[in-house]
Design a protein around this nucleic acid. Sequence first.
DNA 1: AAGAACTCCTGTTGGC
DNA 2: TGCCAACAGGAGTTCT
Length: 294
Amino acid sequence: MPELPEVETVRRGLEPVLAGAAFAEVVQRRKALRFPLPENFAQRLTGRRVERLERRAKYLLATLDNGEVLAMHLGMSGRFTIQRPGANAQRPGEFLHEAGGSSAHDHVEFIMSNGVVVRYNDVRRFGFMALLPGDELATHKLFCALGPEPLGPAFTPQYLAQTLSNKRTSLKAALLDQRIVAGLGNIYVCEALHRARLSPRRQAGSLTTKSGRPGARASRLVPAIKGVLEDAILAGGSTLRDYRAIDGALGYFQHSFAVYARLGQRCPRDGCKGIVSKIVQGGRSTFFCPQCQR
DNA sequence: AAGAACTCCTGTTGGC
DNA sequence: TGCCAACAGGAGTTCT
């Protein structure tokens, strides 16, 4: 479910309640999510203080006062909700979890020293949590192969053209590959390719010119990716089905989609008369405008 | 060895 | 209305 903008929105919501607080109690309702939860998970967290909450790709990283890092991935349907101390009555229109009390698919609960209850809910259980030594993060198998942050300075047209050179897979599949660039998912790849006027079917290696320089296409694509992500973060992410920020707020970037989930509608690009198409690539739906995306 | 297919899981939706 | 197949924001594993 959540891609980089949604995870970043969750991070910004959780950071004020987690950073500086300690785990007073940890409730673990099942042994495993996608993978087994860490051995002695609750015991190892209890009493630890969270020093900071960061994001890498689609991971949330809570650095603890003993040097360990709690890494959390939301998978497709994972979400965090918070219950503030004394917030018992459900107010009209309020997100269910804000009313307090756990519900089905709440798999982990963090009761913090500041009285806030943070719940991890994940219907499909494709998410997972790991507890790792901080100094081993960079070399851990979950993180060592991740590509650069798309919003970071290392993600440049030069980097992308270089990395994609000779790749025969589709541009769509390449951008979903977290080893190439880390944090994009199905929605934002579709949207970025539309902004860059590039076909999702184009061979990834075709971004590289004969001279090996980035060329016009890579030079359009990189700013398109950054722009889409920045706009989506400003909008609090996209709510398709059930994604919410931790306070229950809806993202609203879905209202700005140019192509995603807009099959059959007019391409919104000025002067383009195309109709949004849908194809399947690697088992995932791709939305694009065959008219202006080449 | 790159690239594509399959897999995990539950809930919702759309077509008949 | 009911039933059932298709599909959903991800990504590790297994195949070809």
